[in-house]
Design a protein around this nucleic acid. Structure first.
Lengths: 138, 138
DNA sequence: TGGTAAATGCAAATCGCTTGCAACTATTCT
DNA sequence: AGAATAGTTGCAAGCGATTTGCATTTACCA
């Protein structure tokens, strides 16, 4: 097999069903975080249509296994992005057209320690998104 | 008058109604970001009950005027926090009990320029939240 | 004080997401 | 290969957060 994501699924006692494989493929092919509705839409286009409920259930499961990560932009819906094999990074979204771009940087490695010292929390993860205007929108 | 928030409302052609003033008071008295439902609840307790719809409409309006700011923790609901007169800062939320704490720091002043150079977006704002475990939860 | 634009409350609608359940299907065990 | 079974799926219904339509009320400027 030799596919770390599939191996992780097996290790978790998950079955490699047709809808699941199609959903995973779509997630892996998307360079940017996508919503459940978008996954569902792309399934249709790829003639592997699965129910939207199935999409939600698989997204939840993949997130639990740590294979995908939620990304939020205050849009009223959650986007997801594959984690495996991709470097930790953040995003910027255009306030005009909603376009999202990857931001291959993270200034927080050093800061985490400071946050832990100040708050006495154990920091587990963080979310960082930028908002602004893309070249086309202004 | 001499209240910058009220002045901003007037400048926007907004009326200073009773429900609105009560909502504003609650937001200003909350040291941490709160949800629409929480505002609504506290209105009741303060015997200034207003409809939940009114709360939502006012939150949307205050956000448009830039007087309050949304804060998201992937909770399925949006929290809001007064901006005026408070220093720019971020938050950390406990994955166990949901408790939120202020984090009076922002490592992004310098970074914004780099982001703009790299993406060609004009950066307008950013959101940064930390997640972890508070002392009580572990 | 009256006129008017804005705001409110109520009911109903919408949206993103979750749950219950009966019908399937990938895997595992003979 | 075939049966047993645990995990999955689709459909219908449910749910919580937020929005919309509309008739009624209210702040506030002339």
């Amino acid at each position: 097999m030799r596919d770390p994501m599939l191996e992780c699924l097996k290790a978790g006692g998950k079955k490699l069903t047709k809808p699941r494989m199609a959903i995973l493929k779509i997630l892996r092919e998307s360079p940017l975080p996508i919503t459940a509705a978008e996954v569902h839409e792309r399934l249709k286009k790829a003639h592997c249509a699965a129910d939207l409920v199935t999409v939600y259930r698989n997204l939840a499961m993949l997130q639990e296994l740590g294979l995908i990560e939620p990304v939020g932009f205050h849009e009223g819906q959650t986007r997801y992005e594959v984690r495996h094999g991709r470097r930790h990074h953040h995003h910027i979204q255009c306030r005009g057209c909603g376009r999202i771009a990857d931001l291959m940087l993270c200034p927080l490695n050093k800061l985490t320690e400071l946050v832990e010292r100040r708050t006495r929390f154990t920091v587990d993860s963080h979310a960082l998104e930028f908002f602004g205007w893309c070249p086309e929108c202004h």
